[in-house]
């Protein structure tokens, strides 16, 4: 039984078909890239898996259980967590406070109108741990809104990590980043996959990253599956090449 299975999934918005007949399966521990030209339906796919809206056709199963029409809050509890194309963090709070909300949520403390000394210490310890994993320790007491775009994305990943996801969906994690930030993010994604054993799907435009770290690659075009395979297979696939020809070639497909 595969970890995540999509069976002939499609989504319509009125007359518009955003996605149709998507069937794919992701194994536990896999690092899967989703690529495709703009408007191919990558973000729509993420929205379906994360419960942002339900598919109009087909079924999705996660760890063998159907999750087709399950709401996002419940999906989070089952271990599916996502980031967004536009970074969604708590902008006017410090990084520490950002992580604290996530950690307290993960520890199920939200309803507590007070907190014991021991719990406070446990929260602080977990925050330090997360900050170390995503390497944001030096900026813990800076206000998140004042950080660089790249650092904000890192904070967002720290936030979602607090919930110990089984399946992490990253929507364009390196978009708009400089070289150094991109390297840091790429390294982080790889470490989370290898060291924390988190299964990941990520949408990415930078082919160097995709071919560099992804175990397998799914190519979408015009709302349909175009191809699937490892880096070598995708690079050699003539249909993929022609889909990208309209853009400036493979290396610069954004």
């Amino acid at each position: 039984m595969s970890f995540l299975v999509l069976d002939s999934v499609g989504r319509r918005f009125g007359a518009l078909r955003a996605l149709s007949d998507i069937s794919l399966s992701v194994e536990s521990g896999e690092l899967r890239a989703i690529i495709g030209p703009n408007g191919a339906g990558k973000t729509t796919l993420f929205n379906l898996i994360s419960g942002f809206f339900p598919p109009t056709e087909g079924n999705i199963t996660f760890e063998g259980a159907p999750i087709t029409a399950v709401n996002p809050t419940e999906l989070v509890h089952r271990g599916i967590i996502r980031t967004f194309q536009i970074t969604e963090i708590f902008l006017s709070l410090t990084v520490y406070e950002n992580l604290r909300i996530a950690v307290e949520t993960a520890m199920g403390l939200n309803l507590r109108p007070w907190i014991s000394r021991a719990q406070r210490a446990a929260v602080a310890e977990r925050i330090a741990e997360l900050a170390a994993i995503v390497r944001i320790e030096s900026k813990l007491h800076r206000v998140a809104g004042e950080l660089s775009h790249g650092d904000q994305r890192v904070v967002e990943i720290g936030i979602v990590l607090a919930k110990s996801p089984k399946l992490l969906l990253l929507d364009e994690p390196t978009a708009g980043m400089g070289d150094e930030e991109t390297r840091h993010m790429t390294d982080l994604i790889r470490r989370l996959n290898k060291e924390q054993h988190i299964t990941m799907l990520f949408v990415e435009h930078d082919m160097a990253i995709v071919f560099g770290i992804a175990d397998r690659i799914t190519v979408l075009d015009n709302g349909k599956m175009l191809a699937e395979g490892n880096a070598a297979e995708i690079a050699a696939n003539p249909r993929v090449q022609s889909a990208y020809l309209g853009d400036a070639g493979l290396g610069n497909a954004a």
Partner: peptide, 28 residues
């Protein structure tokens, strides 16, 4: 003051700041 400095209060502030993020952390 006590509420605002508790996890409950932190959750309140989180809702003010970004309710979408909280929903996708599993918070109702």
């Amino acid at each position: 003051w006590t509420v605002l400095n508790s996890p409950l209060g932190h959750t309140f502030v989180g809702i003010r700041e970004n309710y979408k993020r909280l929903i996708f952390l599993g918070v109702r």
